[in-house]
Design a protein around this nucleic acid. Structure first.
Lengths: 204, 204, 204, 204
DNA sequence: TATGAATGAGCATTCATTCAT
DNA sequence: CATGAATGAATGCTCATTCAT
């Protein structure tokens, strides 16, 4: 009965643009994650979305634009996860790190494979020209900022080049989240170990 | 019959094969580094090597095999660099780390771009089936072994899951070498900072 | 039922159709001239006309019909120019030719590119089947008629096959107007030279 | 028997490049003539030539290049016809014109449709950039040169702008050859009429 | 062992046309 | 009458791989 009522609202094959775009986004994410950039054809995305392949080009200039949009969406989503978690922390570096890790693992758990796919190296997509700064570099800079502020507050050793250390932290997190999960580590183990590792590395 | 006689008469041009293979390897490395996996065609490699297109397939089953061979070669080369450097160290973790970093940066300097190219994600090459374990994972395991031994010797905190920490170390090193150079950091700065970072993280 | 009542109540927006058609014609001409048949999409025409894509098909069966209509319009327009000019002439062949040339050049000047575009070869539009006689052939026949009458009146050499000569005259005019303008000849030069050329060729 | 001997020489499916190119040229000409530029796909040309469609791109950069090559070949072929015929003439303008017409009609008879197809307007192929000067313009210039020389020799009225007249002559010839044949005129009629027409137009 | 002409499945993209609104 | 999102057949072209020489 419920489904019946629902059906009436949803069944309409729709002719509304936003709906198509949403379908495409969902389909694109699914396929980019499952198969990677090169093994995913615009046609596959459209078909997965239940649309004709011409429709794909109503929403994206080309395949690359679709991928870039997928990456940006993932970035923003993760950002939200991290912001929400970190807001709860008491501001100490340890808690901040722990909460950030939690946020990343939360995201990875609820969006498996997305971060990995979104970090596909720029060289891999034909690029040709510009492309926004790769995700990893942006995130490395964010960490550098965090470390700088913590160092100024005396929470982090002052003899570090924060830019280098920002990258190091990001690398440690990325690599452990990527691989840790792959080999089935338990989440709390990952968080505990990595937090401990980073806190010890950073404390004054 | 004729062809048989001919074959016997002809002084078989002997094994000039290794020479061709060496040329192909050099050419493949150059192009994989410069253009990446997808933008490099077997034909390009053969031509760069000064050989006919067909010759490529005398030495490799397919493009993927050629790439995998390039990766393996790079891995072994780097291994040699690291082994040589680490052999000089006094065995303390700090020195081991510092020498390893030095080895990596040495290699990166003398073989620019090679590590980056060799780490191209498995998902990117068509894969289809198995594929050897990616470089990063293998290296992460090597680090895990190192840390395990150091922990057993009491040089490293004993409350770590070495597998996780191995990945963390690798991640920190990889990310800093990758990005550090890109932004023109000075090598000694990188080594000092990263060594300090890792040593502090690990010491008991 | 509801829709029925509604229909009856609504003051049918009346015939605003002609307005749309006029806009489409103007837009089609502009684009066929600027870009040619193949590079002009029905969508472009509609958009240039400030109308939705679908509206195009309210007025034309397909793209080909639109182009053919453009050609016919141009033909009629030119016809008017020629008729008006020739009406002023004193009926001698020389004056008739000169006035016709003047008419064509007038039209070309005030409608630059239109004749060229309208003469796009039939083979170029997908054709598939029939297609109206190409412009050039129709005009060639018109000239043949003119020459026949003039020959009967003794104004033109009687040893010509008027059909062939009609084509020759048309060809000379077409080619000179096409190319003459392109290379920036002065109009009076063109008219003088071509008139002289034709008059000498035709006189008994 | 003869064909048997021949077969031995010819049957070889060949792996020689020039043979493929020749096949492609023949096929391209056939299809460009029969269907026009737009209705002919590279794939069709290859198939008509009995080759895979990849082979097409071994010989031409793209479809446009193939068409341009077809045009150039036709131009050179016609040139040969004209040169051969004109060489026989006694140098008077009348004979030169008559022989040129003969050459063109010869060519048109033995290569039906080729000239029409080769004169496909530049605007029709995507062009985008340069493209060699269209055939008609080149030929118009050739005629201008002829007329200039004849005028200097006193064989042609001196009050003409030779550039305009060159175009006029070309136009007359082109249009009559194009249309004349289409409506089944007899060749000698065409030649006689057009020669007479041009000679009268030009004589001093 | 070496060659490179030949291949055709496959890809990204376009565009004339339809139809639900 | 008008709209424009949706469609999918069709296109030009690439490239990993084969095989006759």
């Amino acid at each position: 009965m419920d489904s019946d009522t629902l059906a009436k609202t949803e069944t309409r094959p729709a002719r509304r643009k936003p709906e198509s775009l949403a379908k495409l986004k969902k389909a694109a994410r699914k396929l980019f994650v499952e198969r990677g950039y090169h093994a995913t054809r615009p046609q596959d995305i459209a078909r997965e979305a239940g649309l004709g392949h011409g429709t794909f080009y109503l929403h994206y200039d080309d395949k690359r634009a679709c991928f870039l949009s997928f990456v940006e969406d993932a970035r923003l989503e993760l950002q939200d996860y991290v912001d929400a978690r970190v807001a709860r922390s008491d501001g100490t570096l340890e808690r901040t790190i722990a909460e950030t890790l939690n946020a990343i693992y939360d995201y990875s758990e609820t969006h498996p494979g997305v971060l990995g796919a979104a970090m596909t190296d720029e060289a891999v997509i034909d690029a040709e020209g510009v492309q926004a700064t790769p995700l990893l570099v942006r995130w490395g800079r964010d960490w550098a900022d965090q470390v700088r502020r913590a160092a100024e507050a005396g929470d982090v050793a002052s003899d570090y080049d924060v830019n280098i250390i920002g990258q190091a932290i990001l690398g440690a997190i990325h690599q452990t989240s990527d691989e840790g999960y792959r080999s089935g580590r338990k989440r709390q183990d990952l968080i505990d170990n990595v937090t401990r590792f980073l806190v010890r590395a950073l404390r004054p």
